[in-house]
Design a binder for these strands. Structure first.
Lengths: 303, 303
DNA sequence: TGGCACCCATCACCAAAGCCGATAATCAAC
DNA sequence: GTTGATTATCGGCTTTGGTGATGGGTGCCA
């Protein structure tokens, strides 16, 4: 049994395909095929059910998968403990992030990380499909960590660390009938046209499910990927928007940001890692810095 | 980095020698040398200080050693979880044992183990140098587990599980001046000739250190490796003996077994595994059975 | 039902690497 | 200095991982 075989096995298991695993590993498919066969012969058990439409893990394969990951993690750690002594922490980290998160000062964070550990290379990746897409990429193994927003509930396969909780507020044009309220109930907005994020984003998920829980339907007429864009559309009369609210960002404009009550709608930003993997030293170094570079002045759930 | 390299690295580290590591691994020395060099080149750090009298770990080597063991353990576990599904637990276990332990019914235990897990092969090894020798063999990696006897204190590098505590008693010929006492103090025996186990055995260690603590010297004139032998020498007038006492074994003979007080001398039998390694599934299966096959009727420390 | 697309297995070939055996180089102890 | 023990180096052999092409099987769709 070789580390190379375990690596290939894990790749095939994650991608459910010899062909795609070979692509990811930069070898030809026949090599992966032979390698897995060797592993199966050595272990005396078939690891995959081969089908014309990809492969599925057998019971034996399912048993091996976590153990194989453990082994690869241990091997990576073994490498790291030595290289750390000579050249500090090195390695490559891929962080999944949301399109426009100004609550985390990523440039400053990465500057600090570079200064502390020059050997770490960071790659940022944003997903067009929001937190849902990031979650998938993370569990598929394409990301080392991801920033995700949701209502604060757990996500299967991810270990989440909460960074920030911001109440969702309603953006209204100042000439709107509700614009002078001090607080708005969700039910008051059921008939409005909404500007919101696309399906898959945390914000959309929170608001959609809140309406669903109340038994209400709503209409999203414009989709944006940025709170600032949402505010701009509100300003131009395209509708109202429910987004995590930082009152300061709107001061002096003709858009009002009003607290939502009934129910509270907390928008929770977390950083997540896969429960199936252990983080590399490089990833851990990045994760350790995130809380310090998260804006804490608006960590509040109050109205 | 290959598992083979880690295996060779651990062997060299444990034996402090390329040559002996090569012997253990059944490869030639030049192969180990090249392999370790490759590992050092890949990690960018020297792992051993080479000397004419063997090798010593560098700081990098010391850092790598536990991580390498973890990796190898994880790989072994990966193998086991799969083979366990098809052929049950398999593997080879080497148990270090004392020459004559009748308090553990090893034949019955191994019979049960064979019945439960036919794929496990057990090798028993006794050490001529008693518990001390077993401890060394265990930490050197030659044993998976060892039965050791001592006064119940901890042993560096070993995780001990207590099986049995038996008070040490004094064997005397029935015509001895102290033979009719109901209890004897250690100081009463300082002038006697002793029959005892060789240095390195748990019993010898306990009694020697007890006399040393009292500031007394004693003379061991006959060395045996079996309690029955000790009783035989006592019967023939060669001296007295302090051994873990089971009154029943002497009934109907002309040798008396008398309790020692001042101080209590507990003889503690434990089974130990190395703290540096995790046990294989096969070793664990054996360990799990030991308590059930340990005589519990004499688990007592009372006089 | 036949063709097509997709996927895994097999094969021949090549380059790299592991292993062996022998030998050189180094160092400590006597 | 010599001896003994230890690690490093070298040439040659064998194994094996990788490649690229090909074959065979399966589901999908016209």
């Amino acid at each position: 049994m070789e580390l190379r075989q375990l690596e290939q096995f894990v790749a095939v298991a994650e991608l459910s395909s010899f062909t795609r695993a070979a692509q990811r590993l930069h070898v030809v498919q026949s090599g992966v095929s032979a390698s897995i066969q060797g592993l199966e012969r050595e272990l005396g058990a078939r690891l995959f059910e081969r089908g014309a439409r990809g492969v599925r893990l057998t019971a034996a394969g399912n048993a091996l998968l976590p153990a194989a990951r453990n082994t690869l993690d241990a091997a990576r750690t073994a490498r790291e403990v030595v290289t750390q002594l000579t050249s500090g922490i090195t390695g490559e980290v891929t962080l999944g992030t949301l399109a426009s998160i100004d609550v985390i000062n990523l440039p400053a964070l990465l500057g600090q990380l570079r200064q502390a550990h020059p050997g770490i290379k960071v790659r940022l990746r944003t997903s067009a499909s929001g937190s849902t897409g990031l979650t998938e990429e993370l569990t598929r193994g394409d990301l080392d960590a991801a920033l995700v927003a949701n209502d604060g509930s757990a996500i299967a396969g991810m270990r989440l660390t909460r960074l920030l909780t911001v109440p969702i507020r309603c953006l209204l044009r100042s000439d709107h009938a509700l614009a002078d309220r001090s607080a708005i109930a969700l039910a008051d907005l059921a008939a409005e046209q909404f500007i919101d994020f696309p399906v898959g984003f945390g914000n959309r998920l929170i608001v959609d499910s809140a309406f669903a829980r109340l038994g209400l339907k709503r209409s999203v007429s414009v989709e944006v990927t940025d709170v600032t864009d949402a505010a701009a559309y509100v300003r131009h009369g395209l509708g109202v928007s429910l987004v995590p609210g930082w009152p300061a960002t709107l001061s002096g404009t003709d858009v009002r940001s009003i607290v939502i009550h009934q129910p509270d709608l907390p928008w929770v930003l977390s950083v997540g890692v896969s429960t199936a993997r252990t983080s590399s030293a490089a990833a851990q170094a990045l994760l350790d810095l995130i809380p310090a570079y998260t804006r804490s002045d608006i960590v509040t759930n109050q109205h």
